[in-house]
Design a protein around this nucleic acid. Sequence first.
DNA 1: TCTGGGGTCCTAGGACCC
DNA 2: TCTGGGGTCCTAGGACCC
Length: 418
Amino acid sequence: MFGLVDCNNFFASCERVFRPDLAHKPIVVLSNNDGCVIARSNEAKALNIPMGAPAYQYKEVFDKYNVTLFSCNFALYGDLSNRIMNILRTHCFRMEQYSIDEAFLDFSGCKIEGVGLKIKTQVLKWTGVPVSVGFAPTKTLAKLANRIAKKFPKETEGVYVIDSQEKLIKALKWLKIEDVWGIGRKSSNKLRALNITKAYDFTLLEDNWIKANMSVVGLRIKQELLGKSVLDFQELEPRKNISVTRTFDKNYTKFEELRERIANFAANCSEKLRNQHSCCHSVLVFINTNYHRKELDQYNQSIIVNIPFETNSTIEIVHHALVGLKRIFKSGFEYKRAGVILMNFSPDTSQQLSLFGGRNIKHISLMKTVDKINASLGNQKLRLGVQDTNRIWKMKQEKLSPNYTTNIADIITIKAKS
DNA sequence: TCTGGGGTCCTAGGACCC
DNA sequence: TCTGGGGTCCTAGGACCC
């Protein structure tokens, strides 16, 4: 049996942990620069505020129904996520953290009676975050069971098990095709055109058709839906790409402005890269104008710069990112978005020597020291001069909540009455 | 005025090898 | 008129996830 534990409306629930006055009230969490809606409480969903909605288009709804807005606070969500994952780990002998707010738990050969409710109760009591639990013989069905638990909290108490043929058929006939894990918009549109509207209909399709139209990915989904497990637990492996990309709060026109941002993105990437003990061989830089503003001149360009050696030095990676930026930058455009992606990784223990001069070995210890100092004195205390020493930009975060659990200054004060 | 960010996997086709 | 057969590796783009 696979278990899937998934937090309900995770970001919104995190904000509510320290704001009990907001229980049963509509909450919305916004993306960077307070741009889009990225999480909603059930009450906000009931107001038909869609996922990804631009905040400015829903201002009236927010005002009218007294929706509480939050700027995204990833320090808070990350910390609560860690706490929840630590709890989940104690309930099974193997676990795969699938995202910031959900995990697959291995219950093969175990009794699961009462386990779901126990997990749910404990996580809520210890962290304040509500979760739903699904059990089933495959990962895809565990996702489905979880969805049922979430959709019918009263009937299921937030826990649902698919453990019989009757329950399986019933669930498959209930699940809409576009809600099947692994079937996205493109495929579900195609399937709906053929009058395949439920997961059950999909399981009746011929393998040949699925293979031709949806490749082996589609075939796997069919197997999984029928109860044959083909997706196993995945080991935690280092990332194969690391990126930092941003939409800006305003347009940039000058090379120097973009240089500062790109240098910063590349530096942040490098730090993440060292964190997972990798080196990279290539860095991709892209710059975009605002595609929502069709009346403006558009220019979108990216470039991959291959570094002739492998490195995780901020100095070397920033240098090559800026070489790339210089090549693709064109003046006369208003830039709204840009980013840096590191690719082509190898472990930082191996050393491929270069025929024509390799990485600067001195940087290895230098970066170690920089990381150490930044870890103790706060992020980005030590930076390159080309980074934003003057900080020309500021992220719009008007509704940012305190870092209740990660900053000693933000711990809440409780007044007790006798 | 305003419009998110960070990932993975698969496939087809090109370029190359003997 | 007619033009082999069996491989590998790499990349761009598509589709999907949270």
